[in-house]
Simulated assay, not measured.
Amino acid sequence: MNEIIKIDNICDYNAFLGLETLHPLVSVVDMSKSNKITHMRHNFGFYAIYLKDVKCGDLIYGRNYYDYQEGTLVCIAPGQVLGVEDNGEYYQPKGWALLFHPDLIRGTSLGRNMKEYTFFSYEVNEALHLSEQERVVVIDCLHKIELELNHSIDKHSKTLITSNIELLLNYCKRFYDRQFITREHINKDVIVRFENLLGDYFSSDRPQNIGLPTVGYCADKLNLSANYLGDLIKKETGKSALEHIQLKLIETAKDMVYDTSKSVSEIAYELGFKYPQHFSRLFKKRVGVSPNEYRVQH
């Protein structure tokens, strides 16, 4: 596998592509105007959004390969690794890229709300597949940002640039919601596998050996990112992934509480709690009574 090329700032990225830098913290790139390059893997120090116009082979993202089709939008956060295996050939990239450094959005509305755009932590196999109309909207947003970059910098520049980036990201949220809906049958399969995973987990000795299952653990077993699993579960059921884990835990705990040969503390440890009082507190919050009170009532 190729070495990973680290690029920390946008000026270096533009220089690598042979393009002019209009602003040190943000760039809109028409990839068709760049130098011909070889495939490689990158680790960026900035946010990047790629819209490909052509199929470009198997994209490597994290541990997975993804067949990167045209009309696909991929969002990468700083520190993530993205790229294509180098086959030694030079090619002319096509499509668009928006790059912006975290320093650009500090103290802005976008900076304060950045955590809401959870798709920056999705796996590449959870990329956004755009319709033609959606693709037009994305490119229009990129053109607005590009227009502002070509304008002389003044006191309004930062506000207008970050506002247009925020507008683009809000459109991405809308398009992802559409994708969740149009892939409903796939989503339901994920939910079934998620429920089965929890059932298998609590019926094994893993809680005692590993502890309580986390959203990250479940997502990894389902080959999804934690954010994507959380968003999918929330949109399909109205409950968070953590709530689903807790509900499954409580249902398991109710059955165990019937066994009077075990103390509440023993049950808590078997379920993966380090401290029995944490189990009792969660049980009462979810059921309305303590484990001992539930045992007496039933």
Rank of each mutant, 00 (worst) to 15 (best):
R206F: 15
I105K: 00
P24N: 07
G272Q: 01
L128I: 14
S131T: 14
L247M: 02
L232Q: 00
K274F: 10
I37D: 14
V84D: 13
R193S: 11
I4A: 06
E148G: 03
T252L: 12
Q179Y: 03
L25N: 12
Q133T: 14
N196Q: 08
S152Q: 15
P291D: 08
T118A: 13
G57K: 00
N87D: 15
R193C: 07
P291C: 03
K262Q: 04
N292Y: 15
F119C: 05
H298P: 04
S34M: 13
Y13H: 11
L142K: 07
G111M: 02
S131A: 13
E85R: 05
E148M: 03
G79P: 07
F100C: 05
T162I: 02
I49T: 09
G88Q: 07
Y91R: 08
Y122E: 05
G238T: 11
T21N: 14
G216F: 04
F46A: 12
S131K: 11
Q297A: 07
C75Q: 10
A97I: 14
T38R: 15
G107A: 00
S290C: 12
L82R: 01
C11G: 11
F194Y: 11
L51I: 10
R295E: 09
R286C: 12
I49P: 04
N2R: 11
V264N: 10
S261N: 09
H129N: 08
I145D: 05
T118N: 13
H185C: 03
L25A: 08
S34K: 06
M114W: 04
F175C: 00
H278P: 14
E166Y: 04
E270D: 15
L160C: 10
Y117I: 01
